[in-house]
Simulated assay, not measured.
Amino acid sequence: MDTIIFDDELSEITVKRLISLFSEAYDSGFKELRLMMTSTGESISDALKIYNYIKSVPIVICVHNLGTVSHLSNLLFLSGKVRSAAPHTLFCFGPLELNIRKYQKYSLNYLQFLWQKMDQDFQWIINTYQSSSIGSQEVDWVVSHIQRCIVDAEKAMKLSYIDRIYDCNIESDTILARYVNFFPKVTPLMHF
């Protein structure tokens, strides 16, 4: 089984890299792929793009939370057919937010359009959480997505969000790892 380790935020660049790695694994004949992740996500479009892509790939994706899966990165986590987490991990949920630029003018029609779009996205996300539960247990807790909440691995197991808790050892469990966060974080030079 090929393994991808994803320790970055969901962004246009990382989603393109993930799609490239999934396509490469499929082209290489892999039937199963493991995605070990810890991630944040704020971009609705990037989260929806990777979720829909993974759901369409004819490979069994096993997703494992290594640390914290936060906000819209939960959609990436939910795209896995098999979902697991280490005992110490967290799943963080929060409201959808719209960042509006300071001193920017928007018409009432445009703001109403944005509100409708956010409401549609929110309903889609709620439906995705509900339809992606592993067991038959109710997942009304998803509605708390409107408010901020943190779910640990034990609670995630009780809520049928994951199907297994185990502590994996990346070195011994990983035959071939491909790291998604291939761009080093660089501190810009200060010019005087």
Rank of each mutant, 00 (worst) to 15 (best):
L78T: 00
S70N: 13
R83F: 05
H88Q: 03
L48C: 01
L75N: 02
S56W: 00
R83H: 06
E42C: 08
S56E: 03
L75H: 03
P58N: 04
V82Q: 15
L72D: 04
L75A: 01
I61E: 13
P58E: 03
V60N: 15
K55C: 07
L75M: 02
S73D: 13
H71G: 12
S56Q: 03
H71S: 15
Y51Q: 08
V63M: 12
L90S: 12
I54A: 07
L76D: 11
G41P: 07
V69L: 12
N74H: 13
K55S: 01
N65W: 08
T68M: 13
K55T: 00
S84Y: 09
P58T: 01
G67H: 12
A85G: 09
A85I: 05
V82T: 15
S43Q: 04
V82L: 15
N65I: 06
H71N: 13
Y53K: 02
I59C: 02
I44H: 01
S79I: 02
I59D: 03
S70R: 09
I50K: 01
K81S: 15
T68N: 15
D46V: 00
T68P: 14
L72C: 06
Y51K: 03
T89H: 05
I54K: 00
G67M: 09
L76E: 10
S79E: 11
E42G: 12
I54H: 01
L90Y: 09
S84R: 08
S70D: 10
C62R: 13
V82A: 12
V60I: 15
V57R: 06
L75F: 02
E42Q: 11
G80M: 09
E42M: 07
F77S: 08
G80C: 12
L78I: 00
Y53R: 04
P87M: 08
V57E: 05
V82F: 15
K81M: 14
Y51A: 03
N65G: 08
Y53F: 08
V60K: 14
K81C: 14
K55D: 05
L48W: 05
A85K: 09
V63D: 10
Y51R: 09
P58S: 04
I61Y: 14
K55L: 06
H64N: 11
K49Q: 10
V63T: 12
R83K: 10
S45E: 10
F77L: 06
R83E: 04
V60M: 13
S84L: 09
N52E: 07
V60L: 14
L72F: 07
S43K: 03
G41C: 06
S45R: 04
L76I: 09
